[in-house]
Simulated scan of single mutants.
Amino acid sequence: MSGVDFSTASPDQIAAVEPAEFVRIVRRMSDKQVDQVMASPNRGLIIEAIFRRMPGLFRPDRARGVTATTHWSITGRPEGGTDDWTVRLADGTCTCTPGHDGEPTVSLTMAPVDFTKVVTRRGNPTMMFMTGRIKATGDLALARRIAGFFEIPKP
């Protein structure tokens, strides 16, 4: 599927976008365009689609021996508040559920633009943390490593 406009796409169209195509589309978007999409009614669908795909992109060989509960908060909801997700890594698996569940090993808070940069590897999470664009509490060593546990498709 080429040329999907995430701000007006249907739930079925968003669900049909393969991970590599998603990365290609988002990497071509300016920060302003990402902000506009994340202010659209499709924001929740897009964030959900990202988290629902994470288990399929998880590389257990890169996370050997890691057991962690991570809380993700994506700020800037149009009506206020955050989109919250829990990502658990244990026994070579990754699971993602909406909301914050359990005691976190690390909590990550970021704006939508920074979130899309992290999940598409368009940005450097360590630099984003050092400049205050990503807030992390808990196991900061894990926070630095977490993006590497996933195989981000080449666009």
Rank of each mutant, 00 (worst) to 15 (best):
residue 1 M to F: 11
residue 2 S to G: 14
residue 5 D to N: 08
residue 5 D to C: 00
residue 5 D to M: 04
residue 6 F to W: 07
residue 7 S to L: 06
residue 9 A to G: 13
residue 11 P to D: 12
residue 12 D to S: 13
residue 13 Q to D: 13
residue 15 A to Y: 03
residue 15 A to L: 13
residue 16 A to P: 06
residue 21 E to A: 15
residue 21 E to Q: 13
residue 22 F to E: 09
residue 23 V to K: 04
residue 23 V to Y: 07
residue 23 V to A: 11
residue 26 V to Y: 12
residue 27 R to E: 14
residue 28 R to E: 13
residue 29 M to K: 12
residue 29 M to H: 06
residue 29 M to S: 14
residue 33 Q to T: 10
residue 34 V to N: 14
residue 36 Q to Y: 06
residue 36 Q to M: 09
residue 39 A to T: 09
residue 39 A to Q: 14
residue 41 P to Q: 08
residue 42 N to A: 02
residue 44 G to Y: 01
residue 45 L to S: 12
residue 46 I to N: 06
residue 47 I to W: 02
residue 47 I to V: 07
residue 47 I to R: 05
residue 47 I to A: 08
residue 48 E to F: 02
residue 48 E to M: 03
residue 48 E to C: 04
residue 49 A to W: 12
residue 51 F to H: 09
residue 53 R to A: 11
residue 53 R to G: 04
residue 53 R to P: 06
residue 57 L to D: 05
residue 58 F to A: 05
residue 62 R to K: 08
residue 62 R to V: 00
residue 62 R to G: 05
residue 63 A to S: 06
residue 65 G to F: 05
residue 68 A to W: 07
residue 68 A to V: 13
residue 69 T to F: 01
residue 70 T to M: 11
residue 71 H to Q: 10
residue 73 S to T: 13
residue 76 G to T: 00
residue 78 P to E: 08
residue 79 E to P: 08
residue 79 E to L: 10
residue 81 G to V: 08
residue 83 D to I: 14
residue 83 D to G: 03
residue 84 D to A: 12
residue 84 D to N: 15
residue 84 D to P: 10
residue 84 D to V: 08
residue 85 W to Y: 13
residue 85 W to C: 04
residue 86 T to W: 00
residue 86 T to K: 01
residue 88 R to V: 15
residue 88 R to I: 03
residue 91 D to E: 15
residue 91 D to K: 07
residue 94 C to F: 06
residue 94 C to D: 02
residue 95 T to S: 11
residue 96 C to F: 13
residue 97 T to M: 12
residue 97 T to A: 15
residue 98 P to S: 11
residue 101 D to Y: 01
residue 101 D to E: 15
residue 102 G to H: 03
residue 102 G to T: 00
residue 102 G to A: 08
residue 103 E to R: 15
residue 103 E to A: 14
residue 104 P to M: 00
residue 105 T to P: 12
residue 106 V to P: 07
residue 107 S to N: 10
residue 107 S to M: 07
residue 108 L to I: 09
residue 110 M to G: 04
residue 111 A to V: 04
residue 111 A to L: 03
residue 113 V to T: 14
residue 113 V to H: 10
residue 113 V to D: 01
residue 113 V to M: 07
residue 114 D to T: 15
residue 115 F to R: 11
residue 116 T to L: 14
residue 116 T to E: 15
residue 118 V to Q: 10
residue 119 V to R: 07
residue 119 V to E: 05
residue 119 V to W: 09
residue 120 T to Q: 03
residue 120 T to K: 07
residue 120 T to C: 08
residue 121 R to F: 11
residue 122 R to C: 02
residue 124 N to K: 11
residue 124 N to A: 13
residue 125 P to K: 08
residue 126 T to F: 06
residue 126 T to L: 12
residue 126 T to E: 01
residue 127 M to E: 10
residue 127 M to K: 15
residue 127 M to P: 03
residue 129 F to K: 04
residue 130 M to A: 15
residue 130 M to D: 13
residue 130 M to R: 10
residue 131 T to W: 01
residue 133 R to E: 11
residue 134 I to D: 10
residue 134 I to H: 09
residue 136 A to K: 07
residue 137 T to G: 14
residue 138 G to A: 08
residue 138 G to K: 08
residue 138 G to M: 09
residue 140 L to W: 01
residue 143 A to L: 09
residue 145 R to E: 01
residue 146 I to W: 06
residue 148 G to L: 10
residue 150 F to M: 06
residue 150 F to S: 03
residue 150 F to E: 05
residue 151 E to C: 10
residue 151 E to L: 07
residue 152 I to C: 15
residue 153 P to V: 03
